[in-house]
Design a protein around this nucleic acid. Structure first.
Lengths: 333, 333
DNA sequence: TCTATATAAGAAAACGTTTTCAATATTTTG
DNA sequence: CAAAATATTGAAAACGTTTTCTTATATAGA
């Protein structure tokens, strides 16, 4: 469609091979010729076709990003941080949302595959992703879920520990009826949280109640719904742990709607800070989502593996501590 | 690298032409052969190489998205809405941020060009973008800036009118010392605002002051800085208009930091609602950014033009009305 | 039965690159 | 100055597709 290397060759009166050599800065090309060719390139405005280049060289300078939802602030934060690492190295990002749907995830990966991405950034939904991913055999970096950490480079926050800390924090302050609102049950991140939740109860010699663990979707809507359900129970929990910033937003909207007071009526701990945390009353006690750190690590891991493919598989576990606000009340025993 | 059409042909004992015909559902292929080929495809797990396909057919099923910053909530909102339209039709999104830098913008467009995107979504920075964009001649849909509305399909919010409404609203309530905090001065959107600002003063027989128009970047940091500067002036404005939700966030953080009261000490109108608007005191009087509407229109425009390229150029102008909150005080004259 | 027409399948060119290989021109060396 | 080494160039194959053009086979018409 546009100007091809052949056009440049004709314009400069040389062969396409020579033009290619000039374009790619190969040695052994006469200075005079080189100047000729460069002039022709400028005159015609030639840009190498990356499709053809990719087909020949097996390199597209494109990284696929397969995530749950590209409009989720957490995901965006991670992606943007990774982009900051990858873009300066010449990579661009091909993005697709899976909406936490295994079928869509598979489609996305197939698409990335057939578009020959050089690498993949993924927050895996399905556990058997490896079976249909291995065909490609390009570098993969996973985050937020640790189901694939034995196969692919992974960076994730230790959710078991984070949840343990949150529950322990609450138990130590006299809460025992502690609810957790989280996203899709099948995600490994939720299994980790579940374990952390149980361990905290176990170590504090308390007994957890099954009905206090609520799973739905990482959305405002579910945050609202779940919180409402909790509050209207006969034995409403004295504290709630929210699984993500987005869920917390929903919870807070519901809180205001129902006129519930935090922390007087119910205590709240959030996984992930709100984007306008500072402007909201009360300050929410939370553990950081660490989008920046995750994204940066993901970018760097991918980059290093693109350069030296047969590195050993790496796992980067980040720890997130509780940052105290004013949303937890101490109960007198 | 992976399984090619040649492998399938060999496996099925037919020619590549036949395989291609089967894959693309072309007529004139024997049922028996077809079954053979399909079995071979399944056995080998063949996926057509989109690079090769794109090279041959001039179709990549990829849409380039060249925007100021992929982590800006407004941009994300638009992009996600467009993705909802485009993805089901088989397109995926190749994203790049320009950071409002003309050079970067040009690089991004060149990159999209050389990766042979089928179409482009763009919020243009530079005004002479058309000169280096025309080479490609693929469908382009622009938003948020109207500099290219005579050349490319464009959807944008009438910022002149929106700003007029905001200023008029304030003037009618007794404010005359009205500041505006906005982003990069060179952007057309700011020129429109400037015009709206002046027109409101003119129609209300008031005189505008040049020093009340502040331009910087669409960032929290600039919102904080500009607001501080305004408030510490000897003749501080009685009202501030913020050019974007992100700027408003910065302003509000500064407001809290400095202990300024809204609207008692200073009134505020924001272009764009905060994501947690409902949770913040006071409710901010604002005009909607309309991300969803913009993104949906962009997606639909692009889609229709991909299908029928020689449609006349379309311009969709959206109107945004003032939504009243509690952040504007009426001054007794 | 012989020719005309559909139908089915393959061979090969093309898309825009890179790269190997062979050919030529230039320089160095003895 | 001849031979060997080196530097420069171009022709052509290859990457994985699609598609045009043949060709072979089957069906129909006379």
């Amino acid at each position: 469609m546009g100007v091809t290397i052949k056009d440049v060759a004709k314009e400069a009166g040389v062969s396409v091979a020579t033009v290619s050599r000039v374009v790619n800065g190969m040695p052994n090309v006469n200075e005079e010729m080189k100047a000729q060719v460069e002039k022709a390139i400028a005159r015609l405005g030639y840009k190498p076709n990356q499709l053809a280049k990719g087909l020949k060289n097996n390199v597209t300078n494109t990284i696929g990003v397969v995530v749950t939802d590209i409009s989720d602030p957490f995901i965006i934060g991670v992606t943007r941080a990774a982009e900051k690492i990858l873009r300066p190295e010449g990579y661009s990002l091909l993005m697709a949302s899976t909406d936490n749907d295994e079928k869509k995830e598979r489609e996305c990966i197939d698409m990335m595959d057939s578009k020959c991405v050089d690498g993949l950034i993924i927050s895996p939904v399905s556990n058997d992703i490896a079976t249909f991913l291995k065909a490609g055999m390009y570098p993969v970096a996973a985050f937020d879920r640790n189901t694939l950490s034995h196969i692919y480079d992974t960076v994730y926050v230790d959710k078991e520990k984070a949840m343990f800390s949150a529950v322990d924090y609450l138990l130590k302050r006299g809460h025992t009826n502690i609810a957790m609102i989280s996203g899709e049950k099948k995600l490994s991140t939720n299994f980790d949280r579940y374990n952390g939740y149980l361990r905290a109860f176990f170590e504090n010699d308390q007994v957890a109640r099954k009905e206090n663990l609520l799973f739905g979707t990482f959305s405002r809507a579910y945050g609202m719904k779940a919180f409402k359900q909790l509050v209207t129970r006969k034995e409403a929990p004295t504290a709630v742990i929210s699984g993500s910033a987005t869920l917390t937003e929903g919870i807070l909207i519901q809180v205001r709607k129902m006129g519930v007071r935090i922390p007087e009526d119910i205590s709240l701990i959030s996984f992930g800070a709100l984007s306008l945390q500072d402007l909201i009353e009360p300050q929410i006690t939370h553990s950081k989502e660490m989008q920046e750190e995750i994204g940066t690590h993901i970018g760097e891991m991918l980059l290093s593996r693109l350069r030296t493919p047969n590195l050993p598989v790496r796992l980067k576990v980040l720890e997130s501590n509780i940052i105290e606000g004013d949303s937890v009340k101490t109960i007198n025993l």
